[in-house]
Design a protein around this nucleic acid. Structure first.
Length: 278
DNA sequence: AATTTCTCCTGCAAGC
DNA sequence: TGCTTGCAGGAGAAAT
């Protein structure tokens, strides 16, 4: 569930307590969540963290010796900075920082993971350059060009991280509602004007969600790097609201399955393009 | 080449 | 109360 806004909230909350600190020790409790070398030195033991970057839903800890470690939170992952080691199950990697603070990667469902790279260049070649542009920097003209001729539904393409990085199921539904677009709309049928509307809604919603610290759903799993919950879930217009009245027109919200994911939309506010244009 | 389906995993909620 | 079943979904592989 951590999507771009949640991952950005984690990045910002961790920045001050992690950047500039040396990693005193790394413990890997579950080696299979680490891809690439899981040797402590390759997971930044002994070096200082110089920066934390983000592409889409993925974080990357950069060390001052050039090495870097990507962390993907998957569905249920969290990256928590605490004053002492956290108790409980599903903690897979622990970075003990100089000064006693501890950074823990916890992921019950293990859809996330950790990737170690010898350099940013290798990270980019093997991983980040294979991803689409970050959703916060996409422009309408580039998205329009990318979607030209595509027959897949717009929601499917919004979720495709090889095309665009950062949008997941929650924000895809929220963005499409804000833009008044039916999730099954063929991507290639969006003209530049509608694409501009879509991109404007995408930016507005992702930024508002970042400002609110992301969305913590009823299961309560999402926390930022300091353990704080998000506050954007109270502003969801459609996600997890199937059967309830639309906040704009009171029509009962409809749920379908698309790309294997539950999809909620308002049949009145989000009409099919085909019905408008023949 | 594009698109869809399958698979991984655990926790929670609903139903009996 | 205690069981089973279904559902949630990111991403990459596999199938169409």
């Amino acid at each position: 569930m951590p999507e771009l806004p949640e991952v950005e909230a984690v990045r910002r909350s961790l920045r001050d307590c992690v950047v500039g600190r040396r990693v005193a020790q790394v413990a890997v409790l579950r080696p299979d969540v680490v891809r690439g070398s899981a040797r402590p030195a390759d997971l930044l033991e002994g070096v200082a963290v110089a920066d934390i970057q983000r592409l889409g839903k993925e974080l990357c800890l950069l060390a001052d010796n050039g090495r870097c470690v990507c962390v993907h939170l998957g569905m249920s992952g969290s990256l928590l900075a605490t004053g002492s080691p956290i108790a409980g199950q599903h903690v897979h990697v622990i970075w003990t920082l100089e000064g006693g603070r501890v950074l823990s990667f916890r992921d019950p469902r293990r859809f996330g993971g950790v990737w170690s790279f010898a350099s940013v260049a290798l990270r980019d070649e093997l991983r980040w350059r294979r991803r689409g542009e970050d959703a916060l920097s996409i422009t309408a003209s580039r998205l329009h060009a990318q979607w030209r001729g595509r027959r897949a539904p717009i929601k499917t393409l919004l979720l495709n991280q090889a095309l665009l990085s950062g949008v997941g199921n929650i924000y895809a539904d929220e963005i499409l509602f804000a833009a008044g677009l039916h999730p099954l709309t063929e991507a290639g049928r969006l003209d530049l004007g509608l694409t501009k509307t879509l991109v404007a809604c995408l930016r507005r919603i992702l930024r508002a969600a970042i400002a609110a610290g992301g969305s913590t759903l009823r299961d309560g799993t999402y926390r930022d790097g300091l353990g704080e919950t998000g506050r954007y879930q109270t502003r969801h217009a459609v996600y997890a609201r199937a059967g309830l009245p639309c906040v704009r027109c009171q029509t009962q919200l409809r749920q379908i399955r698309l790309a294997g994911r539950s999809t909620v939309y308002c049949p009145t506010c989000q009409p099919r393009l085909g019905f408008l244009r023949g």
